[in-house]
């Protein structure tokens, strides 16, 4: 069960430690069902922290997103830890960053929050439109309880939960320095029914589906920036020399961008679904990521973001990897 009191107490303790720079958690957003990442600097901010089915942001992103400015001459780099609150999926992002040496273990303090699934805001805001005042939302068994301005509403989980959560196998952090409450049962079996359905279509059907989706891309790169695994300092999309993908937004360049983005996550995507959540034009990005995740899992029995000691998928191999497609 979510215990906000305990969460705030631990947050206070953590952020007061000498070796912790700040803590990244969630806070109530500015309106309606929105939640915002909160960067907590001192214990007095503990009351702002929340944990609810609205906390979909994957905070592990900020571990690699924060710009590293050059340290002024004569000063020491700040080597204190960054404390971060993680759900099950987010913890896999942290592990994968550790596998890739994107972050150092001794620079992070991981606070685990077992999670019973987060909401799909699009579904929620469609169900309860036009709500401005902040709403409290809680888990209650297989229901979600909304405390709306005009009363309390119970909604079955299946109606409002994010798609990724309905088949989630890792609701509990796979790695943490401290776990805030009891582990929860996993919601799904991690099936790939949706992927299989797409696989069965013929090339024309597949392309007409993706053509539609790719052509609406406006290249805001939100999917790239929100991804905890997208942290190359020099991204191929920003490079001019060589310029593999033109800046123009059209079906050709957008497809190239989306394929490159998805492929870059092959064997790395931990299926937190953030890319799909943030997309302002509703491209089903997870369908691409999940296709690759499925192949990696089924053909190579590999899952990213579970064992910090494992080797990255694409920089390892087995001599007997499948090669039936090779001529």
């Amino acid at each position: 069960m979510v215990d906000l009191e305990k969460m705030r107490t631990i947050a206070k303790e953590t952020v007061s430690r000498d070796d912790v720079r700040y803590l990244i958690g969630w806070r109530q957003g500015t309106y309606g069902f929105r939640v915002s990442p909160h960067f907590m600097k001192g214990p007095e901010e503990a009351e702002k922290l929340i944990f609810s089915p609205l906390c979909s942001n994957n905070l592990a992103t900020y571990l690699t997103l924060t710009e590293k400015l050059p340290v002024p001459r004569g000063e020491q780099p700040d080597s204190r830890k960054i404390a971060v609150m993680v759900k099950g999926c987010d913890s896999r992002a942290v592990v994968q960053q550790l596998i890739e040496k994107g972050i150092e273990r001794e620079r992070v303090f991981v606070i685990g929050c077992p999670c019973e699934g987060v909401l799909d805001l699009k579904k929620v805001e469609e169900k309860f439109p036009g709500i401005l005042s902040p709403v409290e939302v809680e888990w209650s068994g297989d229901k979600i309880i909304f405390t709306l301005p005009d009363g309390v509403k119970e909604v079955p989980k299946g109606e409002v939960l994010a798609k990724k959560c309905l088949s989630c196998r890792y609701p509990n952090p796979v790695m943490s320095d401290i776990t805030l409450w009891d582990e929860v049962k996993s919601l799904g079996d991690g099936n790939y029914e949706d992927v299989k359905e797409m696989e069965e279509k013929n090339p024309q059907e597949k392309w007409s589906f993706w053509k539609d989706k790719f052509s609406s891309c406006i290249r805001c790169y939100s999917c790239r920036n929100v991804c905890p695994m997208c942290y190359c300092e020099d991204c191929v999309l920003d490079r001019l020399n060589p310029q593999w993908i033109n800046r123009s937004a059209n079906i050709s360049e957008n497809s190239a961008f989306q394929l490159a983005r998805a492929f870059h996550l092959a064997g790395r995507c931990i299926e937190c679904g953030e890319c799909e959540r943030v997309c302002p034009v509703d491209i089903p990005l997870m369908a691409l990521n999940r296709k690759l995740a499925k192949e990696v899992r089924e053909q190579y029995e590999f899952e990213p973001g579970l064992d910090p000691e494992s080797k990255p998928f694409q920089s390892s191999y087995r001599p007997n990897d499948k090669e039936d497609f090779i001529l």
């Binding site: 024309q204 993706w210 394929l259 998805a262 492929f263 690759l292 192949e295 990696v296």
Partner: peptide, 17 residues
Amino acid sequence: YARRRFSLMNELLEYVG
């Protein structure tokens, strides 16, 4: 490495049509 990489690439390309 190439085998792993392009086996997935092949899958991805077929998946988008």
